[in-house]
C-alpha cells in the first residue's frame, strides 16, 4: 500500500469515526442518565439526512406528520391527566408545545418553497422538525417505564427502533438520497486529495464535542444531567425530576443524531434503514468505553471508523463482519478487566 492510499483510507476512517464518536457520546449520555440503551439513535441520523434531502428536493418531509401525531398523542394523554388533577394553568403550554407548534411547522412547510431556501435555513428546519421527536419519544415510550429494569427498557428501545424503521420507509421510500456537498473546496495533502466536506465533518464534530463539554461542565442544566447520572435520588431531592432529565437527554441525543445525519448526507447515500448500522458502530465505540467513559467511547468510535475504512479496502464484502466481530474481543477484554459486582435489580 502506498502513502496516498493510506492517507485516503485514514481520511475516510476519521470522517466516519468522527460521526461514530458523536453517536457514541450520545449513547453513553442516554444510558448514564436514563439507563436506556438507545438503539434508535441511528434512526435520527437517517431521519435527519433524509428530511434535509426531502426539503432540498422541494418535498414536504413525512417526519412532520410524525411530529404532529406524537404531539397530539402527548397532548391527549397529559391533557386528560391535567384535567383530572384540575391543573388548568398547565394546559395552554402543553397544547402550544405539542399541538400548536407542530401544526405551525407543518403549515410553514407547505407555504414555504423549501427547495429554494438557503442551506443553513434548510438545516435549521430539519433540526426543528426532527429533534423534538427525541423528547416526545421519551415521553411516550420510556417515561411510563422509568423504573423498569434495563432489560425491559432495552426491549422497548428495540421496539421503537423497529417502528421508526417502518415509518422511515413510509416517509422516505426505499430509494436512498444523497445531498449536494456543503462545500466544493478540495485540498491536497501529501499528494492525496482532501475534500472540504471531510474537513467540515471533522471540524463540526470536534466543535460539537467541545460544545457538549461546555454544556456539561459550565451550565447548570448540564450539571443537572450529570448529577442525575451519578445519583438519581440525590438529583430528585434537588428538584431535578427524572422526566426532565430524560427529555433533556433525548433532545440532546436526537440533536446529535440529526446533526450527524446532515453532516454525512453529502458523503454517503443514506437509505431509510441506514441509520441502524451507523448507530451500532457508534455503539461498538460506546461499548469500548464500557458505556461509561466519554473519552474512551469517542476514541473507540474513531478506531471503529478506521477499522471499517481499512477493511473495506482489503475485504470490502466482509467490512460489516469485521467491524461487528471486533466487539467480541472488546467484550472479552472488558469482561476480563472489569470486576462486575452484581447489583440487585428489581
Amino acid at each position: 500500500m502506498d502513502l496516498q492510499i493510506l492517507l485516503l483510507l485514514g481520511q475516510d476512517g476519521i470522517t466516519n469515526g468522527a460521526i461514530y464518536a458523536l453517536l457514541a457520546l450520545a449513547l453513553v449520555l442516554v444510558f448514564a442518565v436514563t439507563r436506556v440503551i438507545f438503539i434508535p439513535q441511528g434512526e435520527f441520523v437517517a431521519y435527519g439526512a433524509l428530511t434535509l434531502a426531502a426539503l432540498q428536493a422541494g418535498k414536504v418531509p413525512g417526519t412532520i406528520w410524525l411530529l404532529v401525531a406524537l404531539g397530539a398523542t402527548i397532548a391527549v394523554l397529559d391533557g386528560f391527566r391535567l384535567l383530572r388533577e384540575k391543573r388548568y394553568a398547565k394546559l395552554p403550554p402543553l397544547l402550544i408545545f405539542n399541538v400548536g407548534l407542530p401544526l405551525l411547522a407543518a403549515a410553514g412547510l407547505f407555504a414555504l418553497p423549501a427547495g429554494d431556501l438557503p442551506l443553513w435555513l434548510q438545516v435549521t428546519i430539519t433540526m426543528l422538525v426532527v429533534v423534538p421527536l427525541g423528547p416526545m419519544i421519551y415521553r411516550l415510550a420510556f417515561q411510563p417505564l422509568a423504573s423498569a429494569p434495563v432489560l425491559v427498557l432495552l426491549i422497548v428501545s428495540v421496539a421503537v427502533h423497529v417502528a421508526m424503521i417502518g415509518l422511515g420507509l413510509l416517509f422516505f421510500g426505499a430509494e436512498g438520497s444523497r445531498t449536494p456537498p456543503f462545500t466544493e473546496i478540495s485540498f491536497e495533502l501529501a499528494g492525496a486529495p482532501l475534500q472540504g466536506q471531510t474537513v467540515l465533518v471533522v471540524v463540526a464534530s470536534a466543535a460539537l464535542i467541545i460544545g457538549l463539554y461546555f454544556f456539561f461542565e459550565r451550565t447548570i442544566y448540564g450539571k443537572a444531567l450529570r448529577a442525575t447520572a451519578m445519583n438519581r435520588t440525590g438529583a430528585r431531592l434537588m428538584g431535578i425530576p427524572p422526566a426532565l432529565a430524560g427529555k433533556l437527554c433525548l433532545t440532546l441525543a436526537a440533536a446529535i443524531g440529526v446533526f450527524s445525519g446532515i453532516l454525512i448526507a453529502p458523503i454517503t447515500t443514506i437509505y431509510y434503514d441506514s441509520g441502524f448500522l451507523i448507530g451500532l458502530k457508534g455503539f461498538v465505540g460506546a461499548i469500548i468505553g464500557g458505556l461509561a467513559s466519554y473519552p474512551v467511547a469517542a476514541l473507540g468510535a474513531i478506531l471503529v471508523g478506521l477499522l471499517e475504512s481499512f477493511s473495506s479496502f482489503y475485504a470490502s464484502a466482509f467490512k460489516e463482519v469485521i467491524v461487528f466481530t471486533l466487539i467480541i474481543p472488546v467484550l472479552l477484554w472488558r469482561s476480563l478487566t472489569s470486576r462486575h459486582v452484581e447489583e440487585e435489580e428489581e
Binding site: L151, I287, L331, R334, S335
Partner: peptide, 8 residues
C-alpha cells in the same frame, strides 16, 4: 458482565 452486554 452486566445483563445488558449479552443482548448487545
Amino acid at each position: 458482565m452486566g445483563g445488558h452486554y449479552l443482548p448487545l
